[in-house]
Amino acid sequence: MTFSRIAGVGSFLPGNPVSNSDLIQRGVDTSDEWVATRTGIRSRHIAPPECTTSDLALEACRNALASAGTDVSEIDLIIVATTTPDFIFPSTACLLQSKLGNKGAMAFDIQAVCSGFVYALTIADKFIRSGSHKKALVVGAEVFSRILDWNDRATCVLFGDGAGAVVLEASEKPGILATVAHADGSQNGILSVPGSLRNGQVVGDPFLRMDGQAVFKFAVRVLSEMAEECCAQAGIATSDIDWLVPHQANMRIIDSTGKKLGLPVEKVVVTVDMHGNTSAASVPLALDQAVRDGRIQRGQKVLLEGVGGGFTWGAALLEF
């Protein structure tokens, strides 16, 4: 039987960290205490104007390929999860493929906002298990700063830019043990960018809008529910998880999820203080950080979780 296994991880953050105090100096009406106590966020990275989503993805993929010891010519599948593509089309995955120098691999984008990376990993796992593909680049990349209303202090302080990637390859040994993914489109109004491009003009609101309380309640509920669902599918208890790598949106959501699952804080990977919410890049960024600093080791059980606008949510349990 063929399984899929993560062979390498990588990430990339543009420029220097932008602190809460830096945002105040740029004219955002907030305070370091207000942001930190409500969200846990201390800083984030903001891409310069010339930097695109595919540029961030390129650097993350180079790092992941190096980590895996894989040449880009071996990649036969590229999936990019993003809410902020370079263009309407071609896909960011095809632009990334060109920049990497790969030809012939299947390449496409998916849009599930902050759940995007877990959705993409789930899809890649099924391609590899089917036997049709051998090695995939699975990427979450965002320039979320481009869709923020910098006059809305309730949202603009929460997000940042970045990219994370993994090399997923066919293996005789199980790597991804279970995946779950869900959506509820009836909740589309609590987190969205309700605008579109029509006849060369922006129609509607081109900025991110969020009902923070509704998002908080929804996220805490589904994150704990799908963790239990994913573990049950794999035949393990949540207490068997060595590391929880949740979507890095808000420290209160992360804390509440860990408590509901009975996991000590020492088992939860947190990077939201350094990166803010990087949407589809959030989970792979946190995963890469924990692998590179030595916390996550081979053979450990790791649960990845994402939840985002749509509403979408997904989880992947893996033996790293």
Rank of each mutant, 00 (worst) to 15 (best):
T2A: 10
A60R: 00
D149N: 15
A214G: 10
A141P: 04
R146C: 01
A107Y: 03
T82Q: 08
W150H: 13
A280G: 08
L287S: 00
G140V: 01
P85N: 07
N188C: 02
H182S: 05
T2I: 14
L148E: 13
V215W: 05
L261N: 11
K103H: 08
Q213C: 01
L137K: 06
V193K: 06
I24M: 14
V139L: 03
N277Y: 09
L318G: 00
V28Q: 09
P206I: 06
A227C: 13
V157D: 08
T52N: 15
T271Q: 04
D29G: 03
D29A: 14
V80M: 05
S43Y: 10
I241W: 13
V307C: 09
V222R: 12
E319F: 02
L318A: 09
F127A: 01
V180Y: 12
A163S: 15
L244T: 12
I254C: 12
P206W: 07
D32V: 06
V157W: 08
I110A: 03
Q25R: 14
R198I: 13
A107L: 03
S11A: 15
A232R: 14
V268N: 12
P48K: 14
D22K: 10
C114V: 11
L318S: 05
L23V: 07
D55I: 11
V18P: 00
I253L: 11
A315F: 00
G299Q: 06
A281T: 00
S132F: 05
V118W: 03
L285W: 10
T52G: 00
I241E: 11
G212V: 06
I6D: 00
F207W: 13
S192P: 00
G164D: 11
C94Y: 04
I190G: 02
V113W: 02
P206H: 08
R146Y: 10
G212W: 10
E59L: 14
R26M: 12
M274N: 14
F320M: 12
S115P: 02
